[in-house]
């Protein structure tokens, strides 16, 4: 039987751990995380109630806020969902198809990560605007993208795509070709190999990528506001409404939106995490226990 002293010691890194100064590093890290993550989050949770519960309840009944939240979540969800097939195909062609210019495409995929979101926003607004290269022909067809919720989805798809590609790509690269061959030898047709073997194996990565793209979409601001038109109840996203409220000096309103956004995002991401565990059954040790 272990004595309690031993049991305690187990929690600490064993002597000769390769990370030098592990204890010091751990304490510093925890302190920093507390300062830059936990503290602001706590403040965000406490701040709304400081104006009094009444102000909070009043702010919570704002239908414009709920409309903005609904638009934010539905567009982020739709954009992430539409990114999934595109991301898979892109990752597939990067890994499997030895296309000329593959390296260029590979570098371009990360571009949405790198360029300032405002630049993205202006570019998209120009492109999809009524006189834009894409906006004009689309308008002729009766589809207006700019200044509608569709525009928000387009912008969010642009910023969300790399998440899917970069999540799926490494898994696909490690995917043993024997799995497809085995399925083929067992009589599976190509589409059966895709739906029964390839996609299920990629599913945890797809869900992860979806979760990241979705989370990014909820918080995205810069790339959206130029193309969205920002009409309350129609194309106004929640992060923008926070800015609007702050400009009106309505701190209770701003923080209450932030609070709801925080709670809803947490719930959504927990849902994604749960889904990921489910689809990872058998693929990642411990996922089914």
């Amino acid at each position: 039987m272990l004595k309690p002293v031993h049991a305690l010691r187990v929690a600490w890194p064993r002597p000769g751990d390769p990370l030098p100064g592990f204890r010091f590093a751990l304490i510093t890290t925890v302190f920093w995380i507390g300062l830059i993550v936990a503290l602001p989050l706590t403040a965000l949770i406490i701040r709304p109630w400081q104006e009094g519960t009444g102000a909070m309840v009043a702010a919570m009944q704002d239908s414009r806020m709920f409309a903005a939240l609904r638009i934010s979540f539905t567009t982020a969800f739709l954009a992430a969902l539409l990114d999934v097939p595109l991301g898979i195909i892109l990752a597939w062609s990067l890994v499997r198809a030895h296309l000329p210019g593959r390296r260029v495409v590979d570098a371009l995929i990360d571009l949405p990560f790198a360029i300032p979101t405002a630049v993205t926003g202006i570019t998209l607004a120009t492109l999809y605007g009524p006189q834009g290269w894409l906006g004009a022909p689309l308008k002729y067809l009766g589809i207006s993208v700019a200044y509608t919720a569709t525009g928000i989805v387009v912008a969010l798809m642009f910023v969300g795509l790399p998440f899917i590609v970069r999540s799926v790509e490494p898994v696909l690269r490690e995917f043993p070709p024997e799995l497809e061959e085995a399925a083929g030898l067992l009589g599976a047709r190509p589409w059966q190999i895709l739906t029964r073997v390839a996609l299920p194996t990629l599913m945890p990565a797809i869900v992860s990528g979806f979760g990241l793209a979705f989370a990014r979409g909820i918080g995205e601001y810069g790339s959206v506001i130029f193309i969205a038109g920002n009409q309350p109840f129609r194309s106004e996203i929640a992060p923008l409404l926070i800015v609007v409220r702050l400009q009106e000096f309505d701190y209770a309103g701003a923080t209450s939106i932030a609070f709801v956004l925080l709670v809803a995002s947490s719930v959504c991401l927990a849902g994604v995490a749960w889904l990921r565990r489910r689809v990872a059954r058998g693929l990642i040790a411990g996922a089914d226990s």
Binding site: E178, V197, T201, L283
Partner: peptide, 25 residues
Amino acid sequence: GFVFQNYALFQHLTVAKNISFGLDV
């Protein structure tokens, strides 16, 4: 019937589903 060196079992399927794969498709 082909058995690969690395077995190439479908990790996301149970043993029973692995075995029945050829019949399921």
